[in-house]
Each structure stands twice: as C-alpha cells, then as structure tokens.
Write a protein that binds this DNA or RNA. Structure first.
Lengths: 351, 351
DNA sequence: ACTTAGCACTCTCATCCTAAGAGTGCTAAC
DNA sequence: GTTAGCACTCTTAGGATGAGAGTGCTAAGT
C-alpha cells in the first residue's frame, strides 16, 4: 500500500499516460487501448510507443488486461497512485461550492432530518451512494436528561446533547417511582453530569457510587442508581445511507448476484459502522480503494470519507461509496467541502 | 376487480386445476404445462382434459401464456381469485405461532428499535420485504411535552406519546426565553393538552387563542403561542423497511433496470407511506396484487398488510412486499398473526 | 357428451459456427 | 528511442440448427 518509492520511478510520460488511461476508463468503463489514448489525448507519440509505456505500467502493477489482447484496465494500485499523485482538480471551483451551499442551506435547522438530508446531498451530487455516520451519543457533551414515567416500573430516558441530538431508551427499574420524584432525580442528575459526554458519565457514576458508599442522601443515591441503569450498555453508532440505487446503474454490477452481496452489506449497517469508525480514527480525508477494504463483499467498491466536527469535538464521518471506478477527481473535493461546510454549520449551531 | 360473480361459474374441477397451477407456479416461477399438472397433482384426468380446462381458465382471464405453446402463468386476476377463494391454510399452526412468538419476545421493550425489529422479523420469516408504518405522532395521545433551550431563540421540542414514541423538532421563536421560563411554559401546556392527540392539540390551541383574545395571562398567552409554533406542519409518517435484498433473489427480477425502478421506489419512502396509508383506511388485512397497485413501478409486486392497534386506537400498518408470485398461503397468516401479536404487546405496554 | 390418444405445429433455448473488430506484441526499419 | 507493419489472440454479434416442451385440433373410445 506504500507507493512512495515507486512514485519516483515513473517518468513524466508514464504518469501522463497512466492518468489518461485512468480518466478514460473512469468515464467509459471499458478497457482502454493504445490507439484511443494516442488519439484522444493528443500525445505526440504513436500508438506503438504508448503500447510500450502501457506494457511498463502493467509490469509495475498499475494496469492489467482483462484478457490477452484487450485494452488495459487500472488496478487498485493504479487508482491509489492516481489518487495520491496524479489527480487533477484537487478542489472545487467557487461556483461549484456555492451550488452546494445553496443546496445545503434550506436543509439547516431541520433537526433529525439534517443527517438524512446531508446524506441525500452527498448521493445526489456524487451520483453514488452517500453515507453519514451520526455522532455517537457517548462522545458528545450532554445538555440535558429527562425521565418520563411510562408504567409502574418502566421509565423513558431522554438524552439531549449539546449538538441537539436526541436519544431515548426505555429502562425498567426495581422500584416504583412517581413522576414527581423522577423530576427531582432528573434535576439532580442534570446538575451533576451536564456537559460531560456519556462515556464520561458512566465512569463518573461508578466512581461517585463507590465514593458515597454510606449513601446518606436518599435522593442522591437514587439519582446515581437510576442514572447508572439508564446509561449502561454501549450506544451503537447510527449510520444514514442514501442513493444505493445509483449503484445499479454502474455497468460493473450487471451481475445480479454480485449486486446482491453488496446490497446485503448496505442493509447490515453494523458493518458499515465498523468501516466508518476506522475512517474516523484517521482524522482526515480518507480513501479506501477496492481491495484495501476489509469487507470482502465490498472489494469492488471505493470509499471517500471525511470527518466532521463541532468546534473541537470530532463528531462523525461522512462520505461517498461508489465503484472503484469512481470519479475521484470530483468526489474527493465534494466530500471534503461538504464535511467542512457541515462542521461549520454544526459549530455555529452549538454556540 | 370484483370477482364475486365469476366465482360461481367455476366448476370444482376448474378450481382444483387453477389452484394446482398457481401453487406450482409460485414455487417454480416457470410456466406450468398440462403434463406436469396431471402428473404432480394426481388428478384422474389426462393432460388433454386438463388442457381443455386450462384453455377455459385462460378465456376467463385467470391464466395467460407467455407465448403460443408455452405453459400457463397466472394473471393478477388469477392470483386475486386464488387469494379470495382458493387459498389453503388460512391460519398458522400452533407450532408456527409459538415460533414467531419466540422470535418476537426478546425484541420487546427495546424502545425505538422495536419497529425496526418487527420489520426484520417480517422480512426474515417471509423471505421477502418487511414494512412497518410507524404510528403517526399526530394520531396518538400525548403523554408529555418538553422544551429544551438550544440557543438564543432556538428551542428543541420533545413530544412523548402514550405509546412511548418520542418525536422532536427544532423551533425558532421570535423572542428570547430562558430555560426556566420554558419549563413553566411546558408545565402549563402539559396540563392543557395531556391525553390529546396532536391533531386535536392543533385545533385546540387555535380555538383557545381565539377565545382568550384579551390575553390577560401572559404565561398562558406565551404557552399557547409556543405550542402553536411547535406543532404546526404535518408530521410525516415514518416507515421502516427491511429485506429488500430478498427481492434480488427472485428470478422475475433478473432484469436489472426493472429491479432498479423498484428499488428507487423503496428508497423514496413517501410513496410507500401513501400506499400504506391507503391500507390503513381499510381497517383489516389487505392484499394488493400486482396491477391493483397505484404505483406503476410496483405493478409486478404484491403487498399484504394488516393494521395494528393499541387498545382501541388504530396506530399503523405492517406487512410484506414481494413479487406477485408470493406465497400468499404462508404470508397472509404470517402478517395477520404478527399484527395481532404486535397489537397485543402494544396494548399491554400502554396499560 | 365427455374424455383421451395421436399428431402436426409453434416457440424457446442452448449450442455451434463464423466473421468482424479491436487490440496486442514483436520485428525491422527510420 | 520511435514507429510502421504484421501476425496473432480474444471477444462479440449474428445467424443456423436441433432438441425439448407444450399447445390445439381431430378423431376415436367410453
């Protein structure tokens, strides 16, 4: 996966030809021949010369032939090199940016739908699959906790984060508690944990409970217990996905069984969460190309992701999934810009 | 679509043959010939006799031939007649029911995930697409309203229904209100509207505002205004869907473009909501077969749905979507039973 | 009058063949 | 180092063919 060495080994001409081939293939989805490279890209070389270069590039592992005497197709390594060193248009034009902003603006302030709309935006503009990994409720500072009495022993716990997310869960308690008592409990608990992320709250409650072994204060004791009960168990990352049907347009997925396996993986969100979590750890724009993906079903797909923030808090990841033959030149800046825009919005919101 | 008349015109033998053909086709997905009907179903008739009967059934519109001299395939009318008058096994066996109950049980009490899990259950057991139309927040009695201060003029409105659903939205107010004032406002509003469905609340607030034109009570005035602002705008029905990939296994969707159109409709949930809303109006188990569907993209699909309740309140619909060639004999009782089980659970919960 | 055997006929589908086309690698000349 | 020329390979589209499945009709049987 390290290509830093080989970079030096390529001559300018080789790089030009490789770029031409990859760009052509991205658009046509068909093996590229020496003839069309010579013609379309106006090199001052004959097809024969280009054939020699292509043979070299194939030896280096950047290209393959689907069968003897067909045109060349980029390998995953080829795409990787393209993305790392050859790509053109590393950023959007001002016009494109304002077009995205315009589409983004009306979505603002729509609460929960926000994530869904950003996902749609990504899939729409990329004509691929858009994904957004929503902020883990554990990681974001809590603004408020509410308890609502449901039945004798069951209460509804509502969590509101500083970023405006709302999460809720039903908890069964051992004892019967009235709504009035619940309110008091909530008030106390709020004063204790406000501003902490949930992950911290869990530790905090355990510490506090140990500390206050004597438990003179009945209210405090109950607050700690109820809080503890409410917040155990991991919160799973939620992921939004849209535009999966765009994938069906791609000629590489004419085989319906291949298609099905990919869609099964889309449906099983937990796998997607796992991969996006990995991207989150990278703390920057990440590209996963084809076989670099740990998920076998997706080794014909590529992923471009970027994290988004609320102030200094890393919240989640958003990105685009498409065939390895995706338009990296357009999609990378799109994802990058969208993540920045989204971060900016969230940061402004929270203030 | 009315088949009541023609029912009488069919002889017992014709009915038997039609049933055999449809059942065979449901399993094989291939045109059924006279020969195999005679063989597999052990009628004491020769293929020639059956051919005559099949010709009659084709004349009546229950069967068609994909091409001259191929076997017969049921029409939508044929399926309709099958479902209305021929179907075997109108209910599940005790063993099957307890198997469903067993799968259903561990899901209980998981709050929001409940809907998602029921959807999975439906798709898993039917090996088709499961759908659940979640209760409209408008229609269900409200248990509690909360306001949380987000930024200067923006507040988060949280609605909790008696059935334990939680809905939230962000509202921008004209004036700055502190959290403390918000709490008072919420308390007042709760006392006014508790137990009403949201649809009623909207009317109520308008009435009340008109009534109290003088508006002596500043707190009441503000409560009404904030409430009004919070609850305008229709709440859209949410729909859960799972198992879409099962559709890709069906031989009738080998054509990827047909497939794509169906999936686009899955992705656009609003259309699905529209159809399920229609089913809801029927107040009983509903089957929509092929061309009976108003959605053109889905005219090769069938839908089996049943409403679910919380006590006497009609909450939503759940069901299964599959190819017209679906196993109605299994899926109808499955949907029916699942809806009853779900209703029973929700009713017990609410008490 | 209903049933059935027999038969000619139709239509699909898989298989095979062929020719065209695109592209390569190699060699030899520039 | 570059390029024209050429033989070779491999895919693909377009017929042609024959087997197989199934029908509808007719005439004989019950």
């Amino acid at each position: 996966m390290l290509t830093g060495d080989t970079t030096m080994e390529l001559t300018d001409r080789q790089r030009e030809v490789l770029r031409a081939i990859i760009q052509d293939y991205i658009l046509s989805a068909e093996p590229v021949g020496s003839r069309s490279v010579a013609r379309k890209y106006g090199f001052r070389m004959s097809p024969a010369t280009i054939r020699n270069i292509m043979a070299d590039l194939a030896d280096l592992g950047y290209l393959v032939q689907p069968h003897t005497s067909a045109g060349r197709v980029p390998t995953d390594l080829g795409y990787r090199f393209y993305v790392d060193s050859l790509i053109e248009r590393p950023s959007l034009t001002r016009a494109e940016e304002s077009r995205i902003e315009k589409r983004f603006r009306p979505v603002w302030g729509k609460g929960e739908d926000l994530m869904r709309e950003v996902t749609k935006l990504l899939s729409g503009l990329s004509r691929s699959v858009g994904v957004v990994l929503a902020p883990r409720v554990d990681q974001v500072a809590i603004k408020r906790i509410e308890f609502v009495h449901l039945s004798a022993e069951r209460i509804l716990v509502i969590l509101i984060t500083k970023s405006g997310q709302v999460d809720h869960r039903v908890v069964t308690l051992d004892e019967v508690i009235s709504q009035d008592e619940l309110n008091k409990t909530a008030k106390l608990l709020n004063s204790l944990v406000e501003g902490m992320p949930l992950s911290r709250v869990r530790e905090f409650l355990v510490e506090k409970m140990a500390e206050e072994k004597a438990m003179y204060d009945a209210l405090l004791r109950r607050a700690l217990e109820v809080g503890h009960k409410s917040f155990v168990g991991p919160t799973e990352g939620e992921v939004y996905i849209d535009g999966t049907t765009n994938m069906m347009r791609q000629p590489e997925f004419a085989d319906i069984e291949k298609m099905r396996l990919i869609f099964v993986a889309f449906e099983e969100k937990s796998k997607l969460v796992k991969i996006l979590d990995q991207c989150l750890a990278q703390e920057g724009l990440t590209t996963i190309i084809g076989s670099e993906n740990i998920l076998r079903e997706w080794q014909r797909l590529s992923l471009v992701t970027a994290p988004y923030w609320c102030g200094d808090d890393l919240l989640g990841t958003l990105g685009v999934i498409g065939p390895t033959r995706m338009e990296y030149g357009k999609i990378i800046p799109l994802v990058d810009f969208t993540a920045k825009l989204f971060s900016q919005y969230l940061t402004e919101e929270a203030s």
